[in-house]
C-alpha cells in the first residue's frame, strides 16, 4: 500500500507545486502508516533521488518520448498502471493546470473519489474527509470519500514545503503508453517570470492606476519582491494587462503568502479568488473601499505617491541601491 504522488516537471525541472504535493502526500502516508511514493512521467533531467528529502521513499519513472507533452488521456492511463502496481490507496496531485486535466480522468477511470482543491490534510479519525475551498474561496467544504482509492488535488500554496533528509529509490516503470491523440504544436511561456498561481507574493493593481502606461511601478515593486503581477477584471477587460494576469471570481484563484492590492476597490468579485491569501495589503485612496475590510494592512493614500515610497523602503530593507 502506498500514497502515490504525481510529480509534475516542466522542462526537466520539478514544479514547486509538486514539492508541496510531495510534502503533503508524505504526511498522509505517515498518517496512514504506508509508504509515500512518487510517479514521474517523461524524461526529467533533475536528480530525482534527491526528492527523497520531501518524504518520498520511491519514485517510479516512466520514460517515454510520447509523454513529452501532456495528453490527459495518456497520462491518466499510465498513472493508473503505476497506482495499481504500487497499491496506492491515496493519489495526490497539485491542483495545478495539469492536475486539473489529469485528476478527473483518473478519478473516473479508477472510480476513485476526487477532492479537487484540498487545503488541509485529510481527517482520518472517522472515515476520510478532506477540506477544500469552495465558492471561489468564500467558504470551505468538507468532502467525505468512501471509495477504496482516493484522489486529492492539493491547492497550490495551501501546504508548506518541508525539506528534510533522505534520498528516494528511483525505479524505471515499464508502462503501456498509448500514442497521444493531442498534438502540441507550440508552447509560449513568459520565461523568467514567476507563474501567478505558484507565486509566494503577488502585486496586483486595478483601475486606480488610470492606464496601462502606469504599470511600471507595479512591475518594479513585483520584481523587487520576486513577486508575480496580477490585475483586476476591469483592467484585463480594457486590455491594459493580459488576461492571464486577471485574478478574482472569473480569473485565477490564488493563495499567496502576501497579496498587495493597489487601486482595487475590492468588490466581492475581486475578493473571491484572492481571499485565501495569508496577508493582504491594500493601498487605495478611497477610505471606504470594501477591500480594506478584507485587508490585514492598509494605507489610505494615492497609489502614485505611496507605491514609489514603498519601493524605496523595500530597497532599503533589502539593501539594494
Amino acid at each position: 500500500m502506498s500514497v502515490l504522488i504525481f510529480i509534475d516537471a516542466a522542462e526537466g525541472q520539478v514544479k514547486k507545486s509538486s514539492l508541496e504535493a510531495m510534502t503533503y502526500g508524505a504526511k498522509i502516508a505517515e498518517q496512514l502508516n504506508v509508504a509515500a511514493e512518487g510517479v514521474v512521467l517523461g524524461n526529467v533531467t533533475e536528480d530525482l533521488a534527491a526528492l527523497g528529502k520531501y518524504g518520498v521513499k520511491k519514485i517510479h519513472q516512466v520514460s517515454n518520448d510520447e509523454l513529452k507533452n501532456l495528453d490527459a488521456q495518456v497520462y491518466a492511463n499510465v498513472i493508473a498502471q503505476v497506482a495499481e502496481a504500487s497499491g496506492a490507496t491515496v493519489i495526490v496531485f497539485s491542483n495545478s493546470m495539469d492536475g486539473k486535466a489529469i485528476a478527473p480522468r483518473l478519478s473516473a477511470r479508477m472510480k476513485a473519489g476526487l477532492v479537487a482543491g484540498a487545503v488541509a490534510l485529510p481527517d482520518t479519525s472517522n472515515g476520510f474527509t478532506v477540506k477544500k475551498s469552495v465558492f471561489s474561496g468564500k467558504a470551505f467544504a468538507n468532502i467525505s470519500v468512501a471509495t477504496p482509492v482516493k484522489i486529492i488535488s492539493l491547492s497550490p500554496n495551501a501546504y508548506k514545503t518541508v525539506a528534510g533528509e533522505g534520498t528516494a529509490e528511483v525505479v524505471a516503470f515499464a508502462a503501456t503508453v498509448d500514442a497521444p491523440k493531442v498534438k502540441v504544436t507550440s508552447v509560449n511561456k513568459a520565461s523568467g517570470e514567476v507563474p501567478l498561481t505558484e507565486a509566494e507574493i503577488v502585486v496586483s493593481a486595478g483601475r486606480g492606476l488610470k492606464g496601462p502606461e502606469n504599470w511600471g511601478m507595479v512591475e518594479e515593486l513585483a520584481k523587487l519582491l520576486h513577486a508575480a503581477t496580477a490585475c483586476s477584471r476591469p483592467v484585463a477587460d480594457a486590455d491594459w494587462r493580459p488576461h492571464n494576469e486577471h485574478v478574482g471570481q472569473t480569473g485565477f484563484a490564488i493563495a499567496p503568502n502576501l497579496y498587495i492590492a493597489i487601486g482595487i476597490s475590492g468588490a466581492i468579485q475581486d475578493l473571491a479568488g484572492v481571499n485565501r491569501s495569508k496577508v493582504i495589503v491594500v493601498i487605495n485612496k478611497d477610505p471606504e473601499a470594501p477591500f480594506f475590510k478584507a485587508a490585514d494592512y492598509g494605507i489610505v493614500g494615492d497609489a502614485f505617491e505611496v507605491v514609489p515610497k514603498l519601493i524605496e523602503s523595500i530597497k532599503k530593507l533589502k539593501g539594494v541601491a
Partner: peptide, 24 residues
C-alpha cells in the same frame, strides 16, 4: 464517489491595521 459532510466559513479577519501614507 464523494459526499459533502459540511461547510465552514473562513475565520473573520482581525481588522485592518492602517498605516499613515507619510510613513510607508
Amino acid at each position: 464517489l464523494t459526499t459533502v459532510a459540511g461547510f465552514d466559513l473562513p475565520p473573520a479577519k482581525a481588522g485592518v491595521k492602517l498605516v499613515d501614507p507619510e510613513n510607508v
